[in-house]
Design a protein around this nucleic acid. Structure first.
Lengths: 147, 147
DNA sequence: TTTGACCTGTGAGTTGCTCACAGGTTCTAG
DNA sequence: CTAGAACCTGTGAGCAACTCACAGGTCAAA
């Protein structure tokens, strides 16, 4: 398979295939006649796996690690399971944060209904956001950011 | 105020202050003696506003637009309200997607309990992810990505 | 033979910072 | 007066995971 063929087969942008190849997630051979990349069905499996893992939130280095372990005839399963569980915890934290955000936003919108479009003083920036409470600074004041 | 002073007052990294200044979100004057930036309390208000808006998911161009409108003595409120509502819809979509992801992941973990750590064939990449279903391709097949 | 679609590698752009660097300034201690 | 620390300046690079642009090479169909 050439780049566009494997890209179409996996439903991704050809540039993503090229990028993954540069990043050594795919290791195609070369057609010596024209120097084109040659991908086989194993590459397609790897590519599809990589895309699915990306959807789950795995990083490219993690995916490369998993694929390389598989290449070395180690089962990557235990490692994947750990990363997976870690990722699940992250997803749950993200959900909680977004839900809090949503509540604050809907409450703000409700409060907004009662405010006029223009504030009496053109100098004041929209009061609502201006007086938005900081989200609970979880552990101690004056932290720089949430990293 | 100098850079570090306003940064501390807003609880951000001094480099963020410099970055926002470069990006014209803050427009301090100069101390002609030493060429240092001089921020006033209005800059501090703008900086705090910007950080809060960032927490809500506003982009820097959006924030700049809001601040500039305020500078021009227009009330940015109606615009902010629109962007805000748009952002709320996004947050809700993100929550839905993450919740779906969580369900799929917990289901996968449960299925995983029944699988051995190593697969019999070292060549096969961990079956579970490999056979992970694509998340419902919402409207038509073969879309490149979710943008 | 001339399109047009594909291929090649490389480099830049995206977002919102954060860090590194090299040199200038200010303040404090001795 | 001088050393050193802590700040200041601007600029440029790095992060993640692509995506796009560019300039030139290859190949199949008309």
């Amino acid at each position: 398979m050439k780049v566009k063929e494997i890209a179409d087969a996996a439903g991704v942008n050809p540039d993503t295939v090229r990028f993954y190849t540069r990043e050594k997630l795919l290791q195609p051979t070369r057609n010596p006649d024209n120097n084109y990349q040659q991908y086989d069905t194993e590459d397609l499996r790897r590519l599809r796996f990589a895309r699915k893992a990306r959807q789950l939130g795995f990083s490219l280095p993690e995916i490369r690690q998993i694929l390389n372990q598989a290449d070395d005839h180690h089962s990557p399963c235990p490692m994947v399971r750990d990363v997976f569980q870690h990722r699940l915890a992250e997803v749950e934290r993200e959900i909680r944060e977004l839900q809090q955000l949503r509540e604050r936003m809907t409450a703000a919108l409700a409060a907004w209904q009662d405010m006029p479009d223009g504030t009496p003083d053109g100098h004041t920036i929209c009061r609502l956001i201006e007086h938005w409470d900081d989200p609970a600074p979880c552990c101690g004041a004056n932290e720089q950011n949430e990293g």
